[in-house]
Amino acid sequence: MNSHIQVRNLNVFYGKQQALKEINIEIPRQQITVIMGPSGCGKTTLLKSLNRFLELTDGTQISGQVLVDGQDIYASAVDVTEVRKRVGLLAQRPTPLPMSIYENVSYGMYIHQMRKDKREYKDAVRHYLELAGLWEEVKKRMHDPATSLSIGQQQRLCLARGLAVEPEIILGDEPTSALDPISSQHIEKKLLELKSQYTTVVVTHTLRQAKRLAEHVIFMYLGEVVEAGPAQEVFNHPQQERTRQYLEGLF
């Protein structure tokens, strides 16, 4: 397996409570990896360890390594903003920034000064809105506030905003859980289209979504990885008793 991310001996504590226990996983390059498991099992914690979002919460203790292309993103010389630029995050609820549609997409490029002039920014904004499948719907209202979009459109805007800083990895934290079925389909379709260019890691608590998206699966329970592997193998021939029970809907 050509792995893009390797997690080694990762332990996470929130205060005294241990959220992740000795996690060792590999995440394949340019595939969709789905992290699944019952709620409270540490899925989101694992996901947020990949873009160093855990440390934004007071009292979090992290030990172990997360290697992206062999480089430990928790090493002291690493610039956290560079990590987050390389590893984009699509949040559970769409969070458009309080700016126009255009500015939401240009924001990250602007902060990282990724383009030279206005023309280039404009072209780039269009490109990423097209990539997120939103361009046709918003091309005539680029300077309206982003909050005027429907919630499903907002999530695609957030996708465009994340893609615009040219990440290698996209994280999705139950990115469709706040959306209606049609909007959810849009997002899933986009993730499937983009998977050949980006390494994608998605947390989901619905088994059906996991089956639709996953090429690689990580099953978690009570802060531990129970089973991980190619989706077909895990879904059809689970090695662990608890994975089998989960797949059968026993908990």
Partner: peptide, 15 residues
């Protein structure tokens, strides 16, 4: 100001 807004900005590598 909701934290989600801060996170949205931090998530794309803003300081």
């Amino acid at each position: 100001v909701p934290n989600d807004l801060r996170f949205a900005s931090l998530a794309i590598g803003a300081t």
